[in-house]
Write a protein that binds this DNA or RNA. Structure first.
Lengths: 239, 239
DNA sequence: GGGAAATCGAACCAATCGGTTCGAAAAATT
DNA sequence: AATTTTTCGAACCGATTGGTTCGATTTCCC
């Protein structure tokens, strides 16, 4: 079965002749595809879409140009495949931090750390720069990235806040707004500093922890309920 | 005196011959310079640095290519001149909002509105996208933009918070961090939404006011002192 | 109005772009 | 080992790039 060997490739042009004989269709070797994507990713993220040439990618990937065009129809298609991959790498396994247990404060700190560490690390910042730069001429690209990445995460986190509200731990008039406030507090200033290349290197773990803790404090001081204070006081007393 | 006519032009090559006769040196007509900058600004901000060609700029500015190269040595130099101008247009006259009088809460709302309205409007977002996109290959550009723009503003605002602290209205352990928290709260979510082209049009005045008011509430609930509450209560009573 | 100077406009440069083509070489299936 | 298929590598396409050059034209100062 072909899909066993290359499950992630859409089966639009299966090259049925070869398929019937149990042979791989042209442009369907997952390893080669990976090789191309990895090389192209480095080039695109280093140079941006425009400045990256297909010859650069050829060189970086160690694959001939003709072969690239067997796997991807155009520069745009290759680019979009890479952005999609990057989005997945950034946002997958991020919201598991919401389900690790512990007190509300602990969970918020754990989530805030995971979020802001990932969003401000060098690789991710470079990827975001590339998407933002391309958003001017290809708005759909930036839009899709945002919808499937940050927006999706925002809804998951809003749901988490809702459930904390149902438990009587938080009291918010506008949970979606509160979710935005929280995520922005967790990266106070740092996100823009990184985007504009003001920081030579990403925030350290300690700095991040300091900012996140301050953000969580501020957030809970605004939205925490009496029940939350009682819980926290009780917990502090037992230690 | 030449510098009276073109004060902003560096006098490196004054074409002394012509200057002695009271004539303008080549490439020193402020009006032409403006014409070129205006055309180039539109093209660069619409297309980004790479995709903008000098022929596009020629067309948009209504100036021959040879003339452009009399005023600017290269595409990069022209681009940097425009970014510098844009930075000035964005951040100048922004921090006057801090000095308009009124209560602390009123001032914070006024400043927050001015800040976030300006930073998320279409023109400014496009300019920022261009700078961020170019920051990958020309980090100095993004760095200078950030230092002379957002960072400078951050220091001004931190000073404002300090003086409010001196008056006993606020109590903060870390004023610079608090300044970041405030500015980020004022654009909760909106800044990233705009950057990634998720929003077709910038936030409305009402939406902005709603977000800013919520941010100011949160900020004051965290950092406001008893003295501030008394002041606000007294003011509310007299109305 | 005469003469100096700046601008224009178009041609021109070498280099590079994304994308295609094709025969030779390499791999893999039978 | 024979044969099918993929990949390679280089040449090639037309278009466009940033940048230069240069005579014709316009503008401006005396």
């Amino acid at each position: 079965m072909i899909s066993d060997l290359s499950p992630e490739i859409p089966g639009d042009q299966q090259n049925t002749e070869a398929a019937r004989r149990g042979r791989r269709a042209a442009g369907c070797d997952p390893a080669k595809r990976r090789q191309i994507l990895d090389g192209a990713r480095r080039v695109f993220i280093d140079l941006g879409f425009d400045a990256a040439s297909m010859n650069d990618i050829t060189r970086e990937a160690g694959v001939s140009k003709g072969t690239i065009y067997v796997y991807f129809a155009s520069k745009e298609e290759l680019f979009e495949a890479i952005i999609e991959e990057e989005r997945g790498k950034i946002f997958n396994n991020l919201y598991g931090a919401l389900e690790g247990g512990g007190s509300l404060r602990e969970t918020l700190i754990r989530f805030g750390m995971a979020l802001s560490l990932k969003i401000t690390c060098d690789k991710v910042i470079r990827a975001q720069r590339t998407v933002i730069g391309a958003s001017e001429r290809v708005p759909d690209l930036g839009r899709r990235f945002y919808e499937r990445g940050p927006l999706h995460g925002h809804m998951l986190f809003t749901g988490f806040l809702q459930s904390a509200m149902d438990e009587g731990l938080l009291d918010m008039k506008d949970p979606p707004l509160a979710a935005y406030q929280f995520t922005d507090l967790c990266m106070a200033g740092l996100f823009r500093q990184c985007l504009f290349a003001y920081r030579t290197e990403p925030p350290s773990d300690e700095e991040m922890r300091y900012v996140v803790a301050a953000g969580v404090d501020m957030f809970l001081k605004s939205y925490g309920t009496v029940k939350l204070w009682e819980l926290e006081a009780r917990e502090a007393a037992t230690e």
